[in-house]
Each structure stands twice: as structure tokens, then as C-alpha cells.
């Protein structure tokens, strides 16, 4: 879950982020990750478990994802998780995954649209000692390996990784299905969602959240705003076309 980036503002006095008024949405590439998991389940069987670290309000998003067809969900939620950078985030998620006992594939989104670090998937591969494929747009399973097409800007490579593996999936790589609302309703408040706290994961306070983070926000500053003229062309279609042609003219002579 991430706040819609356009709706987060900087409080000019406290220099902190104001996310309170921002609407939350599912992180878009994570929907593609879930769709990837559901298709692999359809092809090979198995179960799809959702795992997310976040506040209790994330539950309703997990219920939506259960409605898309996931089998169960684990919400890692504890006040001491707050303020985590990617180091304790990946550690906490890794502990949760280890507690599941069996896991062949950990499928993530390429990056979160608020932090945009893309560091959690490689971090997970390290903590879990699994193989890693990042930025995949096609994922298939063959025996004990996962085959994926990894995008590299305009280039790509085909990778074969031993399982268990962590795979991150790029946004737009498939068409995520719509949730089945009967199933969402069934999931609501049910024990399909379990909540685990730090103690359930055997994590100590100094290893998680803000305390377990190596990066520190020194300060928040307003970005240099790009000054644009925001000049609206007036009038009807004909006038707009003429004015637009005129606006383009200096560039024609360049």
C-alpha cells in the first residue's frame, strides 16, 4: 500500500511529509506481482500467501487481494516496525516468510511508488539466502527453476534461477484481474488474514523499525520547483490552433 504520490505534501513548518490526506492505493507493480503468482498457481498448483508489513489499516487492501484469488494473508504489524528503511523492512518480511516454513517463490513488485528504492527484493534474497531475479516481465516455472525475462531498459535477458527464489515484477507486465467481491466479503474480518507482531517473529526492538535502520533523514527540503508559465490558450478551436502554431514557431526556426 502506498499513498498516491500526487497527494502527499510537505508541511512547510514541520518539514515532515503529510500523508494523512493522501488516498492510499495498492502499489501498482504489486498487483502485477499478485497476478503473476495467481497464474503460476493455476498452472502448477500450490497456494498463494500474501505478506505485507504495515499498519492495521492495510488489512482491507489484503482482503481485496484475497478477493483476487490469494489463499491467505499475513499482516506484519507492530508499532516497533514504524520508521523502517529497507534494511529492517526486508529483515522483517524475511522473518515472516521464514515462519511460513515452505516457500518456493517470493514475488514482489519492482519498486514501491512512494520510496522507489527497489531495494526490498534484493534485500529479501540476501536475508533468505534465495536466488534473485529483478525487474522481470515474464515469469515461468520449469521443474526446480524459475525462468524469467528481465527487462533492462530497451534490452532484456532470459534468466534461469534455482528455486527458492525472489522475483520482482515490473509494473504493467500483465493485466491484473478484478477482485471477486463475494470473495472479498468472505475475507472481511475472517481468519484468512493473520496478524503477526515483532514478538511472533522473534525480532528485537533494536533490529527493527527506525532503530534498526541505517539511513537517517538528515532533513526534508522542498525540491526546486520547476517554474512553468501555465499559459492557457483561449478561444475556440480555430483560435487555439493559430495560437499553438504561433507558440511552436520559434522552435521551427531553431
Amino acid at each position: 500500500m502506498v499513498p498516491k504520490p500526487e497527494e502527499v505534501t510537505l508541511d512547510p513548518e514541520t518539514k515532515t511529509l503529510d500523508r494523512a490526506n493522501a488516498e492510499n492505493v495498492l502499489n501498482p507493480p504489486d498487483k502485477n506481482a499478485l497476478e503473476t503468482a495467481l497464474r503460476l498457481k493455476e498452472a502448477h498448483g500450490g497456494t498463494v500467501t500474501l505478506i505485507s508489513m504495515g499498519p492495521p489499516l492495510f488489512r482491507k487492501y489484503l482482503e481485496l487481494c484475497l478477493g483476487m484469488g490469494a489463499d491467505r494473508a499475513i499482516l506484519l504489524s507492530d508499532r516497533t516496525f514504524a520508521g523502517a528503511d529497507t534494511y529492517p523492512t526486508s529483515l522483517t518480511l524475511a522473518k515472516g516468510i521464514q515462519k511460513l516454513k515452505t516457500c518456493d517463490l517470493v514475488i514482489c513488485g519492482e519498486e514501491s511508488s512512494d520510496a522507489s528504492t527497489a531495494q526490498v527484493p534484493p534485500g529479501l534474497a540476501e536475508w533468505l539466502d534465495m536466488s534473485l531475479v529483478t525487474f522481470a516481465d515474464e515469469v515461468a516455472v520449469h521443474g526446480n527453476t524459475v525462468r524469467a525475462r528481465r527487462t533492462l531498459g530497451s534490452s532484456y535477458e532470459i534468466l534461469e534461477a534455482d528455486m527458492p527464489a525472489v522475483v520482482s515484477v515490473v509494473v504493467g507486465s500483465n493485466e491484473p484481474r478484478f477482485p471477486d467481491f463475494d470473495r472479498v466479503e468472505e475475507a472481511a474480518g475472517s481468519d484468512w488474514v493473520q496478524v503477526w507482531a515483532a514478538a511472533d517473529l522473534g525480532l528485537k526492538e533494536e533490529d527493527i523499525g527506525l532503530k534498526g535502520s541505517y539511513t537517517i533523514v538528515h532533513e526534508l527540503v522542498e525540491g526546486e520547483p520547476v517554474e512553468r508559465k501555465r499559459e492557457f490558450l483561449e478561444g475556440g478551436m480555430e483560435e487555439k490552433v493559430k495560437a499553438l502554431a504561433k507558440a511552436l514557431e520559434p522552435f521551427l526556426e531553431a
Binding site: 500526487e6 510537505l10 512512494d114 539511513t215 537517517i216 525540491g223
Partner: peptide, 14 residues
């Protein structure tokens, strides 16, 4: 830059 560049977070590793 965060959120389309409107905010800059200055980060250090101590």
C-alpha cells in the same frame, strides 16, 4: 526526490 520532485529528502548513514 520524492513524490515527483516536489520534496527532497536528505539522507545520511551514520
Amino acid at each position: 526526490p520524492g513524490f515527483g520532485g516536489s520534496i527532497l529528502a536528505v539522507i545520511k548513514t551514520e
